[in-house]
Amino acid sequence: MRFRSLAGLALPLILAAACAPADPVDGAGAPPIGDAVSELPIFDAHVHYKEPAWEAYPVESVIELMDRSGVAMALVSSTPDEGTIMLWEHAPNRIVPELRPYHGDAGSSNWTKAERMEDYLRARLERYPHEGIGEFHIHRLDTSDEALFRAVIAMAKARDIPLHVHSGAEPVRWLYSLDPEVRIIWAHAGLGERADAVYALMADHPTLLADTSLRERAILGSGDRLDPQWERILLTFQDRLMVGSDTWVNGQWDNYEAIIASNRAWLSKLPREVAEKIAYRNAERIFGREISMEQIGTR
């Protein structure tokens, strides 16, 4: 009889738990920032200044594009690294350099197999003030690369800088298995991964950062509101996200102002506090910078 009474109580308790509201998310329910988003400085967390852009877009013109778009500062990696250094030397107040492994014959598909890659990375890190290693691709996880990745992680940890990783969820999990304390920026918030997979990975790894480059259309959705799954990601992980443009080809430079405008479009639908974090405040914390619109027009 006692068993039947407890069993009778169980179902209502289960239903109550299932219907209980989720933990509150900071900013949820607050009014959107709207047109005031134009007042926010942007930190562009995914810029490349690759060799084909050097003639078409001299360093002066890159900074002018940033100025016209309200981009106060940018995280830049390039193929080869000389492009990043050119921009940084021209406008050190606007550029945060990071070291991309690609150079010579070493590209996105074979860089982990290139001879003396560890030596190359170490030498560039010792010569220049890079504040990240990447953006690099892991197209297909090959655990035989473990020794190189352990060395790369060690270099990053010794300098307290993040890895900027373009991959699916599995390689990110593997990198954390090599060292749970590694700092990672997940490029494009896992371009190719579904929103639910992005949420799951960021929930499982509370230090994981991400840039949202190339995710603008997915985030904006098709109606007046943000895509519900992406809105959940933006609100839940608002302290770990940054916007980005991904100027991987000259066509992206051609459309740079429109790309930044599309980022402002989805930021405008977020509460001011959340929009500010993703636009620039998270970058201030991550890279130890002060970012403001007063940097526009400076070098």
Rank of each mutant, 00 (worst) to 15 (best):
D142G: 05
A189S: 12
P180K: 11
E181S: 15
A195E: 08
I185W: 02
D160P: 04
S144Y: 14
V165L: 12
A189G: 10
G168Y: 03
V198C: 07
D142F: 06
I153T: 06
T143K: 15
T143Y: 12
E170Y: 14
L163C: 05
D142W: 09
S177L: 11
R173P: 04
T143C: 12
I184P: 01
V172L: 15
I184K: 01
K157F: 09
A154R: 11
D179T: 09
K157E: 10
D196K: 14
A187W: 00
D179H: 08
K157G: 02
G190Q: 03
I161W: 02
V182Y: 02
V198M: 08
L191Q: 08
A156K: 00
D160H: 10
A189Y: 03
A151K: 09
I184V: 13
V198K: 05
D160G: 04
A158T: 14
V198L: 10
D179K: 12
L175V: 09
Y176V: 13
P162I: 03
E170L: 14
A189W: 03
A156C: 04
E193T: 01
D142P: 07
K157W: 03
S167T: 04
S177M: 12
A169S: 13
M155S: 02
I184D: 00
R150L: 08
S144I: 14
A195D: 12
A156N: 01
E181Y: 12
K157R: 15
W174N: 04
A158K: 13
I161N: 01
L175M: 13
I153Y: 02
R194S: 11
S167V: 02
S177Q: 15
S167W: 01
D145N: 13
G190T: 01
A147Y: 11
L148C: 07
T143M: 14
S177R: 15
A154C: 06
Y176P: 05
P180Y: 08
A151Q: 10
Y176K: 15
V198R: 03
R150N: 08
S167H: 05
H164I: 06
V165K: 00
G192F: 02
D196M: 14
A187D: 07
A154T: 11
V198T: 08
D145C: 09
G168N: 06
R194C: 06
I184A: 02
H188K: 14
H164F: 12
G192W: 03
V172Y: 00
H188W: 11
S177Y: 13
R173E: 09
L148W: 05
I184N: 00
R159I: 10
A156W: 00
A147M: 12
R173V: 02
P162C: 07
T143Q: 15
E193G: 00
A195Q: 13
A147L: 14
L178C: 10
S177E: 14
R183V: 05
G192C: 05
A187Y: 02
P171L: 09
R194M: 12
L175R: 03
A187G: 09
E181H: 14
P162H: 04
G190C: 06
A156H: 03
A158V: 09
V152K: 00
